[in-house]
Computed example of a mutant assay.
Amino acid sequence: MTIAEPKRPDLARELIARAQASTAHRAKRVRNQLDAVQLGQSRHADHANTKFLRRILAEHDWPGLRLVGTAGARAAWRIALHSDDDLCFQRAATRLLERAVQADDAFLHHWAHLHDRTLINSGREQEFGTQFFLRSDGIELCPLRAPESLDERRASVGLVPIAVALDAVRRRCAPDHRSEDVAATCGLADAA
């Protein structure tokens, strides 16, 4: 998929800035480095990001590769992943992202992550093994449908085998890891 200049670089910049700020807060939240006020500010930012993305979806459908470029589309996906407090919005975003994938305007693995996140947030089992819990004793895969065929389903959407993904998540969530991206792979994670 060849990506030209995005049609809306202004939207791309705003999506990227919002996703980066959210990632920084999430990394601190995972490490219990936020006080109560900062935790509230982080949750408020997630709500504001959801509201912003909702406006974009209403005006433009899914902000795909053609509209906001690769980095902007990734940022939109990350914001949708962290819209956990608005399940109806998350479901709608999943459907719009799926349509964008079908139109070759978004990445299939992004849809797989958002689909799993929406399933878990709905109290159902995930399909592709992209969502994890961060426990005091380590990383645990969220409930999963048909674990015996997981790697086949993962391969069908361009994801690495689950053993490789789990190893990567464990390394990124190690206490000595300094990356701000730790939040993207811990808790109900969007990495795999």
Score class of each variant (00 low, 15 high):
M1D: 06
T2A: 05
I3M: 01
E5G: 08
K7H: 12
R8W: 03
P9R: 11
D10S: 09
D10G: 08
D10I: 07
E14C: 05
A17D: 15
A17E: 15
R18T: 15
A19R: 09
A19H: 11
A19Y: 14
Q20I: 05
Q20F: 04
A21C: 04
S22Q: 15
T23R: 14
H25Q: 13
R31M: 07
R31P: 08
N32L: 11
L34D: 12
S42F: 15
H44D: 11
A45S: 13
A45E: 15
N49A: 14
N49H: 09
K51N: 09
K51T: 12
K51W: 03
A58I: 03
A58Y: 06
D61A: 14
W62L: 04
W62R: 03
P63H: 00
P63I: 00
G64E: 02
L65W: 01
R66E: 11
R66L: 01
W77V: 00
R78G: 02
A80Y: 02
H82V: 00
D84M: 03
L87Y: 09
F89T: 03
Q90W: 05
R91Y: 07
A92P: 00
A92I: 00
A93W: 00
A93V: 01
A93R: 04
L97G: 05
R99Y: 07
A103Y: 03
A103W: 02
A103M: 11
D104K: 13
D105E: 07
A106M: 06
F107V: 01
H110A: 02
H110M: 01
H113L: 12
H113F: 13
R117V: 01
L119T: 04
I120K: 09
E125M: 10
E127S: 10
T130H: 07
Q131Y: 05
F133W: 13
L134Y: 12
L134P: 01
D137W: 13
D137L: 08
G138H: 11
G138W: 06
E140A: 15
E140W: 03
E140D: 08
C142R: 14
P143S: 08
L144H: 10
L144W: 10
R145K: 13
A146I: 06
L150D: 02
D151W: 02
D151Q: 04
E152L: 11
E152M: 07
A155V: 05
A155W: 06
S156Q: 10
G158R: 06
G158E: 07
L159D: 06
L159R: 07
P161A: 06
A163P: 01
V164C: 00
L166E: 15
R170K: 15
R171E: 14
R171L: 12
R171F: 08
H177E: 14
S179Y: 06
V182N: 02
A183I: 08
T185N: 05
C186T: 07
C186M: 07
C186N: 03
L188T: 04
A192M: 06
